[in-house]
Design a protein around this nucleic acid. Structure first.
Length: 343
DNA sequence: CGGCCATA
DNA sequence: TATGGCCGG
């Protein structure tokens, strides 16, 4: 999933997401929904389902997480992926194969009575279909939360909105938004910071805190331009190419500094990368749209109840208390620029 | 994943 | 009030 820059970035941990009160985040919607589909499951890996056997984990995640984050005064705009770039085909095919194998392993683990193993495998089987995407958009409409359809990669669109100043940061678990030119990336934009560590029998917890990653700060620390960072990513491998064997993030940065650009490194190493210029343009000149707004509206309670309670057997009292959390914050206008100027 | 209840 | 464990759909 994207390039892993975890070890080389300057990261600012945050004690609580409430530190971002008043901010608007552009959320990588697919990234987020996949997280819900993989983690909101029973111990044996079965996802939440309604009486007709339709998966509801994605709806549960969007409703409860969005409302509790917004209760802390942090607002989110969901950005959905458009059609994938043709060069992403191989990555998508690999993910499909991993899912299929995981499904077999899940069934095998259940057969053996290995509950923990079953859950771990089940988490890798999540499929996000068109119906689920449409349902999430309907739910967001009912919640009064804005969403945007990207023309291509959602992270590219979110990064564009961030660079324009329409949102304070891009929220994603992936680092690709930095390549797309987002000024600020936030990770672990979650409330309770306690995650169960997948371990045999023993209960271990890790503290997961929200964190900020500033593009300019990191480029300065690395001594690279964004163009060079993109070239480094291409060396390591992106969703659009395989990368050079033996080159990780650290050596990629060293090589870029020593040889200035991708071409220089490739000459030095005497290797080739296919479609290099096209991949560069995916990151540096992505296809984006200005056809969006970031306005929050009042929640449509009856629409939400119809969808969640009538159609999918959610608990009415839980849905109502989640919607209540959206009330106050939704009415306040989005004034990202003036807030930034003020702070 | 967050909500919520049992427990102390 | 704080923590851990299970439930939700």
């Amino acid at each position: 999933m994207g390039i892993n820059l975890r070890d080389i970035l300057v990261v600012h941990p945050e004690e609580d997401i409430g530190a971002w009160e008043g901010r608007v985040l552009a959320l990588d919607a697919y990234n987020t929904i996949y997280q819900y589909l993989s983690s909101i499951r029973q111990p044996d890996g079965t996802p939440l389902m309604d009486s007709q056997g339709r998966v509801t984990s994605h709806l549960s995640g969007v409703l409860y997480r969005t409302s509790s984050i917004m209760a802390k005064g942090v607002r989110m705009v969901f950005v959905f992926d458009g059609p994938p770039h043709p060069l992403k085909k191989e990555t998508l095919e690999t993910r499909r194969e991993v899912r299929e194998q995981a499904r077999k392993d899940w069934m095998a683990a259940l057969e053996e009575g290995d509950i923990e193993g079953a859950r771990m495998k089940a988490q890798q089987t999540s499929v996000l279909d068109k119906t689920m995407v449409a349902e999430v958009k309907d739910l967001l409409d009912a919640m009064g939360v804005p969403w945007v359809d990207a023309l291509g990669d959602g992270e590219a669109q979110a990064s564009y909105m961030n660079a324009k100043g329409d949102v304070w940061a891009v929220a994603s678990q992936d680092y690709d938004s930095l390549l797309f030119g987002s000024e600020l990336l936030v990770r672990n934009a979650t409330l309770s910071g306690r995650r169960k560590l997948p371990g045999r029998g023993r209960r271990e917890y890790v503290q997961v805190v929200p964190e900020r990653v500033d593009l300019r700060e990191n480029l300065k620390a690395m001594g690279l331009t964004r163009e060079q960072l993109v070239d480094a990513a291409i060396l390591v491998g992106t969703d659009f190419n395989r990368g050079i064997k033996g080159i990780g993030p650290k050596s990629a940065i060293k090589l870029l500094k020593a040889h200035r650009d991708l071409e220089g490194v490739l000459r030095f190493k005497d290797v080739e990368v296919e479609h290099a210029d096209e991949i560069r343009s995916i990151f540096l000149e992505p296809v984006v749209t200005d056809d969006y707004d970031t306005d929050f509206r009042r929640a449509d309670e009856s629409a939400a109840l119809r969808m969640l309670v009538d159609d999918h057997q959610f608990s009415e009292s839980r849905v109502l208390s989640a919607l209540k959390k959206l009330e106050v914050k939704a009415a306040e206008p989005t004034q990202q620029r003036s807030l930034d100027a003020f702070l």
